[in-house]
Computed example of a mutant assay.
Amino acid sequence: MKHIGAVILHEGRLMLVPTIFFFVCFNVLVLTITFMDPARGFSIVSHGAATVGALIVGKAVLIADKLPFFNRYPHKPLIYNTLWKAALYIAITTLIRIAEALLSAATNEYGFATGVAEEAAHFTWGRFAAIQMWLAILFLVYTGFRELANQIG
C-alpha cells in the first residue's frame, strides 16, 4: 500500500505543473469565448469543464511523454522537439473537438442525422479557428518552456 501511495504522490507532482498551466489557460480561454459570444453568458459549468480539461491534459502530457515517438528529436536543437510535440498536441485536440461535436450529435434525441444537421447549423468556423489558434499558442508555449526547462535542468 505504501508503494501505491508513493506512485500516486510522484505522478501527482509530475502532473502539477502542466495542470496548473492549462487550468489558468483554459479558464482564460473560456472567458475569451464568453466575450466573443455574449449571448451564451457566464457559465460556471464552462469553467468546471475547463478545470476537468486541465486535469485531463495534465495526465495526457505525462502519458505522451512516455511514448517513444513523442520525443523524436532528442539530439537536435530544441525547436525540433518543440514543434513536433506541439503539432501532435494540436492535431489531437482538433480530433477531440471534432469527436466531441459528433458525440453531441449522436446523443440528440431525434437521432444522429438530425443532430449532425443541428451541429452543422450552429457551427461557426471563426469560433472553431479562434479556439484552435488559442490551443496552438498554448501548446507551443508549454512545449517550448518544457523543452527549455528539460535542457537547463
Rank of each mutant, 00 (worst) to 15 (best):
W125Y: 15
L78T: 02
T82M: 03
F22K: 04
E147S: 11
F35C: 07
F69V: 13
K76E: 08
A101M: 14
L9F: 15
I8D: 07
Y110L: 13
W125E: 12
I131W: 05
F139G: 06
R72K: 13
A64N: 06
K85E: 10
A117Y: 03
I56S: 11
V61F: 09
R13I: 12
I33M: 12
T51P: 02
L148S: 10
M15P: 01
F26Y: 09
P68W: 10
L135C: 14
I137L: 06
Y73P: 01
T124R: 14
T32E: 04
G111K: 08
L14G: 14
N150M: 14
V45M: 11
A106G: 11
S46Y: 08
I152Y: 08
P68A: 11
G126W: 13
I4S: 11
K66S: 15
R146A: 14
V7N: 09
F123K: 08
V116F: 05
G58D: 08
T94D: 06
L67G: 09
T107H: 09
L55F: 12
V7A: 13
A121Y: 14
A106C: 04
L83R: 05
A60T: 03
M133Y: 08
E119W: 14
R13V: 13
F139C: 03
L62A: 06
E119Q: 15
S104W: 08
L83E: 03
L67W: 13
V7M: 12
F21Q: 02
L135G: 07
N27R: 03
E118I: 12
A130N: 03
N108Y: 10
F70E: 05
L31T: 11
A86W: 00
Y110F: 14
P38S: 04
A130T: 08
I98W: 10
E11R: 13
V7T: 13
L16P: 05
A121D: 12
L148A: 09
A86V: 00
N27I: 00
I20S: 07
A120T: 07
F128V: 02
E100D: 15
S46Q: 06
L16S: 11
M133W: 09
E11I: 13
A101T: 11
A64D: 04
T32M: 08
G41W: 10
F22W: 07
G126M: 11
E100M: 15
Y80M: 01
I90M: 02
T143W: 12
W125N: 12
K66H: 15
A99C: 10
